[in-house]
Simulated scan of single mutants.
Amino acid sequence: MLILAIESSCDEFSVAIMKDKKIVANIISSQIKDHVIYGGVVPELASRLHVENFSSVIINALSDSNVKINEIQYIAYTDKPGLIGSLIIGRLVAKTLGLYLNIPTMALNHMEGHIYSANIENKFEYPVLSLVVSGGHTQIQYLEKPLSFEVIGTTVDDAIGECFDKVARQLGLSYPGGPEIDKLSIDGDENAYKFPEINLVDKYNYSFSGLKTASLNIISKSKKDNSFNLKNFCASFQKAAINYLVKNFEKAIIEYKPRSISLAGGVSANKVLRNRIFSIGNKYNIFKILVPDLKYCTDNAAMIAELCNEYINYNN
């Protein structure tokens, strides 16, 4: 089976080729340099750049995989959630190719794709509990069996990545803020600044607005008395945010008793969070602990190809 997958939910346009269940190409056209001057993604600009870039991304993916376009047997694309304009471009490209080649197309969910990014190089043992963390989403999802997605926890306001970006903006750091905070945290004292303990919302839901407000108050106060230290603050903020993430996830592990746990989404590239997931998995003797390779953490089409392959196999 040869699958061509398209991911265009935000500011990356990505095309992947999967051949016989293996990713043989995963090309990503990133627009970060075009949006950084605005401090975040500008939806209309993202859509226009997708139109400019999609043809070269497809050509490069076919070249890298040594596959001809008429050999493709299936096309998958991200249908939701995401920026409407960006999603429409990906859908139009996928549908046009599908009609031209007279092959089926499959509309897939972006969040489900992120979850299966951890399944590309290592396979799930079910049931699976997945912590999905990105700029737009923070979720805990439970999969009792393949493709049985159940959201048991989500954010009621800001996502974890959005919180990182907003705090980074107040610190004068460039967009995206998460990697910048992670980098500065390495040489910082994570106990230098005290954050109020964040209360859990409902059962497994999150709220990051309190952490964001506390961060802004600490920055303002410590700058006024000239006691502010950027690296120490980043380390302390990151510790508070990740402790909160893990606290809920650990509660879910105790209740659901999964055989596998996984991490997914752009924030899954955070070094401290990746280490904490392995620590918590070992603490509860989890059968498998899966985190995606760094190249599959941010938005990419390989995860859509993997998800497509899973649906094809499961339905057959």
Rank of each mutant, 00 (worst) to 15 (best):
K239T: 11
L108A: 03
I59H: 13
A118W: 02
S207F: 01
N122H: 11
S14G: 15
I261K: 09
K166A: 09
N226Q: 11
L49C: 02
Y206M: 01
L290M: 13
S14C: 13
N199Y: 13
Y256P: 10
L307D: 04
V151N: 14
L4M: 15
S86G: 11
M106S: 08
L108N: 01
Y38F: 15
I289H: 12
K271I: 09
P81H: 08
D189P: 03
V57T: 15
K283M: 05
A252V: 09
P258F: 06
N243E: 15
G40P: 01
D165Q: 11
D225K: 13
G90S: 04
N217T: 14
I23P: 07
F149K: 05
I6A: 03
V201Y: 12
S14W: 04
N248P: 03
Q170A: 04
T154S: 07
N300V: 15
T138P: 02
L200Y: 10
E7S: 12
N102T: 07
E150P: 02
N60E: 15
G210L: 05
I27S: 11
I28S: 02
I198A: 14
N316Q: 12
K95Y: 00
K95S: 02
I120F: 13
A264H: 00
I17R: 02
N285M: 05
G172F: 12
P258W: 07
E125M: 00
D157A: 05
Q31M: 09
C234L: 07
Y116I: 00
L307K: 06
C308K: 06
G178W: 01
G40W: 02
I72F: 12
A159H: 01
S260C: 11
N300W: 11
I6T: 13
F237C: 01
A61D: 10
K203L: 07
F278K: 08
A46Q: 06
V267D: 10
G188C: 02
N217I: 04
R259G: 03
Q141C: 14
D64P: 00
N309F: 13
H137M: 00
L131R: 03
Q73E: 15
E125N: 13
V246N: 04
F208A: 08
E125W: 05
N232K: 01
T155G: 13
I253M: 12
P258M: 00
Q238Y: 08
A46H: 04
E121T: 14
S222D: 11
S47I: 01
I253L: 00
K19F: 03
K22M: 08
D299M: 11
G40M: 05
P104C: 10
L92D: 10
L230F: 02
N243W: 10
M111G: 08
I88T: 12
D187Y: 08
F287R: 03
E12W: 08
D11K: 12
Q31P: 11
A16L: 08
T213Q: 04
E310R: 11
K251M: 05
I17H: 12
I289T: 15
V272Y: 15
D187V: 13
S117M: 03
N53M: 05
Y204R: 11
N53C: 01
L290I: 12
M303F: 07
P258L: 00
Y244P: 10
C10H: 03
Y284E: 03
